[in-house]
Design a protein around this nucleic acid. Structure first.
Lengths: 196, 196
DNA sequence: GTTACAAAAATGAGGATTCATTCATTTTTT
DNA sequence: AAAAAATGAATGAATCCTCATTTTTGTAAC
């Protein structure tokens, strides 16, 4: 029986290598070496290089969804839920830089296949944001004139860019916590002073 | 004299091809064909494939900076300036899908070289956002507790994601104008109802 | 415990292909 | 007619993936 262990080992290795070199610059032999298996072994577990990339999403992002879903279930104040989502996302990206890199870089590849895929799997994650917004609007605690679909895009876009910069280098002047607070504040209360 | 005409023609073609296929899937022969020159001709104007990509930024983003700088110079209300920046960015991305694609996709490549480059050239564009925020804070019309550096990231992140989705397909339910309004509103006034 | 052996899993060298780049030649310009 | 520009076929490096072979695992008999 092909061990599920090895499957995971290869995914882990691939995540690391893709993060470091990007999908196209990553060689199968790099992944094989990182996973400590032979090049050919990889093809016992995956159809091709692209299939490895898809599996990285399947596995890693799936986990992300499960985790934040559990956290969100504990809250019922939409404001608070948004805070939780933002904080959790940034914290996870901080803890798992490799995954963060893979999301940043590889999600943008033009490949039709990834786009298809993204519609299915990654959207699920983004839709969590939209449903928080919707809920907040229904409860009357969020303004009605911002469409949840746009809100989900601008919030994810912001999170993605911030975590990209934070993971990029040392010279970033903020911790994820500070960033998290400022993003939440900006979205909830805006840039204008509350006095106004 | 090597004509600057041809230089531009190749850049245009490269922008188109990179947008369609992504940097790594784009073949030099694709660019050559699109530009209607021979493969070898490209190497009279550029050192290598990567150099073409850099030149695309240099040229296209440089133009973007110039343009929005002119627009911003006409305003002196920071709120209004932010509106102008947001609207202009989305409008330009709508008008020039190819450039938009190249920004989305290629700016994220892991390549050290692009990262270096981005620090220099693209940052200039983003810094425009930071300086608007700063100015607003000095004038007391923006709240003080959001750092301009974070603000520039979350605003650009949002713009980038929204234009990415808008350019992706037909099924997007918003025009750039609507998106522009909602983004501006969200950033300025936040998600909470003004009554609160 | 140990031997036998078949099936499963793993190996990694190399075949085949794909392009980026070069350069000898041709075409255009001055 | 010399110089500059352009050409595109040929080169060669890179690497995905295959597959013939080796190693490991599982099991059954003794």
């Amino acid at each position: 029986m092909k061990s599920p262990d090895k499957h995971r080992k290869i995914i882990r290795a691939a995540t690391k290598v893709f993060a470091k070199k990007g999908f196209f610059n990553a060689r199968i032999s790099d992944i094989a070496k990182e996973a400590k298996v032979a090049d050919g072994t990889i093809y016992l577990y995956f159809n091709n290089k692209f299939d490895i990339l898809l599996s990285v999403f399947e596995e890693e992002i799936g986990r992300l969804i499960e985790q934040v879903t559990v956290l969100l279930a504990k809250e019922d104040n939409p404001k608070r839920m948004l805070e939780v989502f933002i904080a959790n996302h940034l914290e996870e990206m901080r803890k798992n830089r490799n995954l963060a890199e893979v999301i940043h870089i590889e999600m943008r590849q033009t490949s039709k296949l990834i786009r298809e895929y993204r519609k299915n799997k990654f959207s699920e994650y983004l839709d969590l944001i939209a449903s928080i917004i919707e809920r907040g609007q229904q409860a009357g605690v969020f303004r009605q004139d911002i469409h949840p679909e746009i809100a989900k895009q601008i919030i994810f876009g912001a999170l993605d860019e911030v975590s990209r910069i934070c993971n990029l280098g040392k010279e970033h002047p903020f911790t994820m916590e500070e960033a998290s607070r400022m993003i939440t504040a900006t979205y909830l209360e805006g840039l204008l002073p509350q006095a106004a």
